[in-house]
Design a protein around this nucleic acid. Sequence first.
RNA 1: GCGGGGAUAGCCAAGUGGUCAAAGGCGAACGCCUCAAGAGCGUUUCUCGUAGGAGUUCAAGGGUUCGACUCCCUUUCCCCGCACCA
Length: 924
Amino acid sequence: MTEETQALEASVRKKWEGVFIATPSDKEKFYLNVAYPYPSGAMHVGHGRTYIVPDVIARFWRMRGREVLYPMAFHVTGAPVIGISKRIARKDESAIKLYRDLYKVPQDVLDTFTDPLNIVNHFSNEYERVMTSAGLSIDWSRRFTTVEPTYSKFIEWQWQHLRAAGHVNKGAHPVRYCPQCENPVGDHDLLEGDKAEIQKFTLIMFSYGDAFVPCATLRPETIYGVTNLWVNPGITYVRCQVDGKEWILSREAMEKIGLQDHDVKEIGTIPGTELVDKKVSHPFCGEVTILPAVFVDPDMATGLVMSVPAHAPYDYIALRDLQQKGKYTDIKPVGLIKVEGYGEFPAVEAVEKADIINQDDPNLEELTQTVYSAEHATGKMYEQYGGKPVKIAREEVAEVLNEKHHSGIMYEFDTRPVVCRCGARVFVKVLHDQWFLEYSDPAWKQQVKDQLENMELVPAEVRTEFYRTVDWLKDWACSRRIGLGTRMPWDPEWLIEPLSDSTIYMAYYTIASRIKHIDPALLTPEVFDYIFLGKETENLPERERLDGMRKEFQYWYPYNFRFSAKDLISNHLTFQLFHHCTIFPKEYLPHGMVVFGMGLLNGAKMSSSKGNVYLLEDAINDFGADTVRMFLIGSGEPWQDFDWRNDLVSSTRKQIERFVATIKESLASDGPETDIDQWLISRMQNHIGMVTKAMENFQTRQALQESFFGIESDIKWYRRRLGQETGGRETMKYLSSVWVRLLAPIIPFTCEDLWKDISDGLVSFASWPEQDSSRINQSAEIAEELLVRTIEDIESILRILKTPPRKITISVAPSWKWDILTLIAEATDKKNVIRDVMQKEDIKARGKEAADAVKQCTNLFHKLPSDLVERIVQSKPDEFSIFTNASVFLSKDTNLEIEVIRSDECRHMKAGSALPFKPAIIIE
RNA sequence: GCGGGGAUAGCCAAGUGGUCAAAGGCGAACGCCUCAAGAGCGUUUCUCGUAGGAGUUCAAGGGUUCGACUCCCUUUCCCCGCACCA
């Protein structure tokens, strides 16, 4: 960025200090907000777009005379910064590198990062500073963080309402858990296994004397087909007391079970070999033998497997291997499921058909999948086992087993290993006393769906995704042990989960600047009930202030639009609807949402951990804020993914410079007004209309295209038409004033600076240009259109002409050809129009010439844009005088002599081919 | 795997039945300007063409239609989400 730009931006920033503070007024309001950032690191250009797009919209509506509120706050609740501060405290290389080198945190500040609050405080300030330098017209007086006592009071109030509405309930919940960190771990905390899902196994308890041998299965309905158990003879199993009963299982399994809501105590060991050939029993399959098998993994579930050879390929293979050695030949598969396309023993058939040789065959895994999904999809239990579809039987059998036959649940990952960032193995742990938000509640879901029905969603395609998310949402565990945040008001052992505390804060913005002046201790639920719900209670404190807040809330709410990237559809954006529906009355429910695409950097995903980021501040320093803004806006519509490419940005800078030069030149212009001015002014009306419409629809890229390149190309033509002359004084003034205002939302620094030479006040608050239909000059536009098209044709001919040209003759079509075109254009029956036209006496009289003309005109009709045909047919431009008037220009432009004639007054054979709006061109 | 959204010229992207060889921007080439470079301006940028035209294109294949980038079906590939995490 040049020093000049730097100085300009600094001076404009000064002018903007404090001016974007939004205060309720007589004007209509426009309240937009964005998902607030979690300030754990520096902003990159991807964040930049997230906040710049809404800023463009905010600036647009401000200029259209709305009272605009664009607030910002910081989400500092949650666990990530705690991990970061720990890593920095223990001098973790990669963490320090990231913060010191990439985010450029000064060493003395970095030293304070051992306290997580210092991290978020530091970056909150950075965010505000960088956002300001990007020109965001944010009302900073409403800034807050989510750990301020005042905000916590607001959260407590919200949660009491949620609980009163019956949406918060207690339960147990399986989570990924790191024993070393003593904390649940999320995807981003994992070194390995981030795709692993928690599977819910049913433990089938086989009796072995007084002890249980638990086998874990995903298919409890197959218990009827169990012919034996599998044990790994190579390992040593443990005997332990689980909830007072003796179990035999692998050591690994014992440790896992211990995390899953069971009281576990080891009492001895038993080698796998000792279990071989022992009998176990279960009421559903009788007495079966334990057989040896090497495929049994002690680290998978219980380390003991029940065998259903009729329906499980692995089991069948293992059994076959033994039987081929002449052992256990009395064991026969027991079929229990009828499957389309298979006989009595699907697994047996599948294995034999696929020529599986032994237990190590790599195809076995896929084969198992095929058989399992076939059975799940179309399988039906045999009559003696209930006759129900597998899908249903599975649930029912599990239930019976749980209730009457000591079965339980064991959770296990579907892929392993799962490893925490700290290096330790991650297990499934069942957390007790978890609080849940019951998003599964159908009635609550319905409220959200009803609200979605009334909402404006941009782009329209996201609507189905929202509905699907609502359907798909299950209960959400909303309490945490670790992290920053607000405590559950009725159970202070727990913190409120960070996504759950950020659902209605848009309402808090409306009062954020005023509530700061009240002692948090006074902020009882009754206070918020009054502010947000208008519910009176006696002896409310600070009544005057509360009234002010109540008024302000009523003025701003509901918000008009919420902006966010599309990855938040499946959680935050939908959660906030649930919460709004519960807390607020109908008239305060959200009005609309705009969903953004994602950002790429030089074609690759932006990722701080991989170092593939470009900091917004660096971008602004390198190119200037307006260039960054214009590039981001121009790279795609908000909902499209965009790619920041350093190599393409610098041309944006040049475009802005070109714009500035044009405006300065225009303001200095003092020529007389000519006919062509009418055209330019007319075109401007067009652009104003288009830009306004695009902005109203959040099509910021379209708005930029129209306001920048659309106008620029008109100016090019205007200048070409003027030749050496200077532009008309008044026209140029008008153009400058309109153009600067149209671009002000996108490149506000540049426009603010230019505006001081155009009018008083700030362009940020200047009125948006109005389309003035009285200044639309149809005939001027048509005349120029005709000239442009004709020049294109002339150039096209000159290009392929080898002989040097001397003179151009333009021959315009006679009026009877215009009649033909008009008839064609106005005909309702386009198919038979040729015949109908030829019926006309005066046309018919012209014979073949007319027939050809009809054909050509039909052709022309299809080739020209339909709105243009309509306009020219209506106004019937006088082509002869248009070309005559422009002949000096044409002659200069082509550097050739120009003659304009009427085709019926010329004998040149080409002259007769003239058509309406497409004169014959004769170059000699 | 499941759900949602996509695939248009070197790149970004507009375009939902004839107006389309397909807007606009970027990039590139050439010309003008200049001592020169850059900027600026102009032209070109699927192929062919000594007259404004013709031919082949809009992921691939098939279909509907007088006519498809646009509607339907199938396939391939890409992006987003799949949860306790911001």
